[in-house]
Amino acid sequence: MPILPDTKFYAWHFMPYTDLPENIDDFDSLWVDFPNKYFDPKAGHAFYQRYLSELVLADKLGFDGVCVNEHHNTPYSLMPIASVIAAALIPQTTKAKICVMGTPAGLDQPHRLAESYAMLDVMSGGRLEVAFPLGTPMEYWSNSVNPVTSRERQQEALDVIIRAWTEDGPIRHEGRFYNYRYLNIWPKPYQQPHPKVYLVGSGSPGTIELAAQRGFGYSSTFSPIATQLAAQKTLKERAAHYGHTITPDQIPIVCMVYIGDDDESALAEMEPHVRYFFTTLTKAGRFIDAPGYLSLDEFKKRNGRMLPSSHGGAFDWHQIRQQFRVVAGTAKTVADTIEKWAEEAGSSRIIFQIHRGDMPHWKVVRTLTGLANEVIPMLKARQIHADDQPLNVAAE
C-alpha cells in the first residue's frame, strides 16, 4: 500500500539567524563560541516575525502539524527555548498539532519540563506532541551537564516527566540526579495519559533501545536513509521484546523539499540554500566532539566522529540527494518521491523541512502552497485509491 491510512503531514522550521558577517567562512564554528556580538536584535525580531508567519501559514493551508526544535549558542536556530515558540504559535493556529522537538530532558529540571509541556498541552486543547533528543555534543559544551552522565540523566528525567504526567501527586522521587519530596505539577496534561512522545537521535543504539523499552516513537536526524531504515527495523524488533508494538505514526520520516516549475530549475533554486545549511550553519569545528558523549563502542563504530560526516562537512549536492531525503522538482516529482519514501519506511507521518539555510520567504511560501495545494492532495488521492474508503483527514 503506497500511502498508509491516516497519514499526516507536518511542516518543520529551523528558524536560523542568517544575517551573518561577510567573512563567515573564516570562522571554524558557528556553535558554542561564535561571538554573540554578531546578533542584531532588530534583525532577530524580523526573523521571528517572518518565521512564525510561515508556520502559521502552514496551519491555515491545512497541514496536520508544525514542528519546532531547540539548540543553544548558535545562529543555526533562533529557538534556545522551543516551548516559547510553541506558546507563540498556539493562539495563532487552530488545528495543527504542535510538535516540540524539543528540550533535551537531562539539560533541564524534569519537573519544569513536565509542567511547561503540560501547560502547553492544556493551552492548545490537546494539540501538543513532544520529542526528546539527547542533544548534540555542542549542547554539552553550552551547558553545565557532564556528557558522561547524559544518557543516565535522560533516562531518569524521562522517568520523572512520565510519572509527573500520569500519577496523581504529590509523589516522591529519589534518584541519582533528581530528588523530589513533592512531585505535584499543576496543570496536568490535557491529553490522557499524556501527549504523544518520541525520542530523536542520529542512530545511536542506546537511544533506540530506550525508545523500545518505553514504547516511544523514534525519529532519526542527520543520518543517511539506509541508517534510518535500519534504526526503525531495530526499534520494532526491540520494542516487541519489551511487549510494545511500534505503529506507523511512531516512525516519522523527515524530508527536505522544494517545489519549482520543473525538476531542473527546482534543483538549481534549492541547491544554494542546502549548501549554506551544510557548509555554514552546521559547521561546529572542535565542538563536534564532547568526550564521554558516546559509549566507547559507538565512538569506535563512528570512527571517532560524534555526528555523521554530513554535519558541517564538505558539500556534494549529488551525494546529499542520494543519501538523504532531499527532493526538488514539480509537484508530481515531489509526490512520487515522498510516496516511495513513505512506503519504504512504512511511515504514516511525513515531516517536510520547508525552509533550509538562507532560503528567502517567497521560496518557503511557494513550497508550502505547492505542498498543500498539489502534493498532499495527490498523495491523499492515492491513499484513497489504495485503501478504497473515505478518509477522515484532519486538514480538511
Score class of each variant (00 low, 15 high):
Thr279Trp: 03
Tyr218Met: 04
Leu158Ile: 15
Ala212Ser: 15
Glu396Asn: 07
Gln323Trp: 08
Met123Ala: 14
Val365Phe: 09
Ala96Asp: 08
Thr247Lys: 12
Ala157Ser: 12
Arg153Gly: 00
Lys196Val: 05
Asp121Gln: 07
Val100Met: 09
His361Met: 14
Gly175Val: 05
Pro91Arg: 02
Leu57Glu: 15
Asp261Asn: 06
His71Val: 01
Leu89Phe: 07
Asp121Arg: 08
Tyr140Gln: 06
Thr7Lys: 10
Gln228Cys: 14
Glu22Asn: 08
Ile162Val: 07
His244Tyr: 07
Ile161Trp: 07
Gly346Arg: 01
Ala284Ser: 09
Thr136Ile: 06
Ala105Cys: 15
Asp316Lys: 11
Met1Ala: 06
Glu298Phe: 15
Lys95His: 12
Ser150Arg: 15
Ile246Gly: 00
Val334Cys: 14
Glu343Met: 13
Lys188Asp: 04
Tyr76Asp: 01
Glu129Cys: 06
Glu343Gln: 14
Glu70Gly: 02
Trp141Asp: 01
Ile376Tyr: 03
Thr207Arg: 01
Ala226Asn: 07
Ile246Arg: 00
Pro2Glu: 11
Phe352Met: 07
Ala328Cys: 12
Met79Ile: 05
Val100Ile: 14
Leu199Phe: 09
Trp31Phe: 11
His173Phe: 15
Pro193His: 06
Phe299Thr: 02
Asp297Gly: 13
Gly357Leu: 15
Ala96Gln: 13
Lys60Arg: 13
Met270Ala: 10
Leu158Met: 15
Gln389Cys: 15
Tyr242Glu: 05
Ile171Glu: 03
His173Tyr: 14
His194Phe: 07
Ser310Asn: 11
Glu70Asp: 08
Trp165Lys: 00
Thr280Ile: 15
Gly125Met: 06
Lys332Met: 01
Arg286Trp: 08
His273Cys: 08
Ala266Asp: 01
Leu199Val: 05
Ala131Asp: 04
Ala114Pro: 05
Asp159Pro: 00
Pro170Val: 08
Asn69Ile: 03
Thr282Tyr: 10
Ala381Ile: 13
Met378Tyr: 03
Glu156His: 11
Leu107Phe: 05
Gly62Ala: 14
Ala335Asp: 02
Asp26Thr: 15
Trp186Gln: 12
Glu209Gly: 04
Gly370Val: 03
Gly313Cys: 10
Lys196Asn: 02
Gly201Thr: 01
Ala118Ser: 14
Ile98Ala: 00
Ile161Lys: 04
Glu237Gln: 13
Pro16Cys: 09
Thr18Pro: 03
Phe352Ser: 09
Tyr178Gln: 11
Val257Ser: 09
Glu156Ile: 07
Glu70Thr: 05
Gly312Phe: 01
Gly285Glu: 11
Thr337Asp: 00
Ile162Gly: 01
Pro91Thr: 02
Val122Glu: 09
His361Ile: 13
Val327Phe: 09
Ala395Glu: 14
Tyr48Cys: 06
Asp289His: 13
Ala43Asp: 04
Ser347Ala: 15
Ala58Gln: 03
His273Asn: 04
Phe315Ile: 05
Trp317His: 05
Leu281His: 07
Gly102Leu: 02
Glu264His: 11
Thr18Phe: 06
Arg176Asp: 08
Ala328Asn: 05
Leu267Gln: 15
Asp297Met: 13
